[in-house]
C-alpha cells in the first residue's frame, strides 16, 4: 500500500473502529445470538431452539398478523394523505405556506411520550374529546383501549398523524421539482387539472412516493412506540402487539436475547422483502 494511503487509513481508523464496534459487530453478534440458547448460563449453541420456537409461536404469529394489518392499511392511507397534503401545500392559492409546512412537520419533532399522552387523553373512553365528538353526532362511544379492533384503528390513526406530514414534506419537494411550464403546456393542450394530476403529477412523483413507501414500510415493521405507550403495551390482551413490541418483551422483559435476535432478524428480512416487492411492482416498464 502506498504510504499516502496508509496515512489516510490511519486518519480514518478511529471512525472505522467505532463503526466496526458499534455497527458491524452488533449485526453479526445478534445473528449469532439467534442460534444460541440464552436461557441457560453459560449460553449454549443450539441452532434450532429460537428459530424452531419462532415458527411455532402463536404470540409471534399474532404480532406478525397485527404488524402486517397495520402496514397494509396504514402505509397506503398515509401515503395517499401525504400526497394530497403535499399538493395542497404546493397550491399557489395557499396563504401562510411556511406556517402549514411547519404544522405538518411538527408531529415528527414532538416528543414521543408527550404525543402518546395527548393521544391517550383525546381517545379516553369517558372524557376524551374524540368520544365526545362521536356521541355528539349520535353514535355510541368507542372504548378505544378495550376493543382490539378499535385499538388497532387508534394505532393506525396515531402513526398516520405522526408521519403523514413528514412524508408530505418529502413529496412536496418532489412536486416542486416538476417544472411549472409542463403544467402550462398541458393547460394549453386543454388537459384538465384532474387529468394533469393523474397523468403528469402522479407519474412524475412515482419515484418519490415509492421512496416514502419504502421508508414507511421499514418504519411500520419496527412499530413499537404507539402500541407500547398508547394502547397499554400491545393491549387489549395482545390485540395491538406488534413484532417490535414482541421483540422488546422477549429481549428486555424476559431477557431472552437469543429469541429476541431471531425476531429482529425476521423483522429486518420482512422489511427488506416487502420493500423489494414494492420496488419490483413499481419498476419502470422497459
Amino acid at each position: 500500500m502506498p504510504s499516502r494511503n496508509r496515512v489516510a487509513y490511519a486518519f480514518l481508523a478511529p471512525y472505522l473502529l467505532i463503526f466496526a464496534t458499534f455497527w458491524v459487530w452488533p449485526i453479526i453478534s445478534s445473528f449469532l445470538l439467534s442460534f444460541q440458547n440464552t436461557r441457560v448460563n453459560p449460553w449454549r449453541f443450539q441452532p434450532s431452539l429460537n428459530w424452531g420456537r419462532l415458527v411455532a409461536d402463536p404470540a409471534f404469529y399474532n404480532a406478525l398478523y397485527n404488524t402486517l394489518i397495520i402496514l397494509v392499511i396504514q402505509v397506503p392511507v398515509m401515503i395517499a394523505l401525504a400526497t394530497v397534503m403535499a399538493v395542497l401545500l404546493n397550491s399557489p392559492l395557499l396563504k401562510a405556506r411556511p406556517l402549514y409546512r411547519f404544522a405538518f412537520f411538527a408531529p415528527v419533532v414532538v416528543g414521543e411520550v408527550a404525543y402518546a399522552a395527548v393521544f391517550r387523553l383525546m381517545f379516553s373512553a369517558d372524557f376524551g374529546i374524540i368520544n365526545k365528538l362521536i356521541t355528539s353526532i349520535g353514535f355510541a362511544p368507542v372504548s378505544w383501549f378495550d376493543n382490539a379492533t378499535a385499538a388497532m384503528i387508534l394505532i393506525i390513526i396515531a402513526v398516520t398523524w405522526r408521519w403523514a406530514g413528514y412524508n408530505a414534506i418529502i413529496i412536496l419537494a418532489g412536486l416542486q421539482s416538476i417544472p411549472g411550464d409542463v403544467y402550462e403546456a398541458a393547460t394549453l393542450d386543454r388537459v384538465s387539472k384532474r387529468q394533469q394530476f393523474l397523468h403528469i403529477t402522479l407519474p412524475l412523483l412515482k419515484p418519490i412516493i415509492l421512496f416514502c413507501a419504502v421508508l414507511s414500510v421499514i418504519g411500520t415493521m419496527q412499530l413499537f412506540t404507539e402500541p407500547f405507550l398508547i394502547t397499554n403495551r400491545g393491549g387489549p390482551g395482545g390485540g395491538t402487539e406488534t413484532l417490535g413490541l414482541l421483540l422488546y418483551r422477549q429481549g428486555f422483559t424476559s431477557l431472552n436475547f437469543g429469541y429476541a435476535s431471531a425476531i429482529a432478524y425476521t423483522i429486518a428480512a420482512l422489511a427488506i422483502a416487502i420493500s423489494l416487492l414494492n420496488l419490483w411492482v413499481a419498476r419502470e416498464p422497459k
Binding site: D181, V182, E184, A185, A186, R190, V191, Q195, H199, P203
Partner: peptide
C-alpha cells in the same frame, strides 16, 4: 416554451398526442 416543457415521462409520440388523447 424556451425550456421545451416536454412531458418527461412520456415518449415523443405520447408527448405529441397527449392533449388530443385527453380530449
Amino acid at each position: 416554451f424556451q425550456s421545451y416543457a416536454l412531458y418527461p415521462h412520456m415518449t415523443v409520440g405520447e408527448n405529441l398526442s397527449f392533449g388530443l388523447r385527453m380530449n
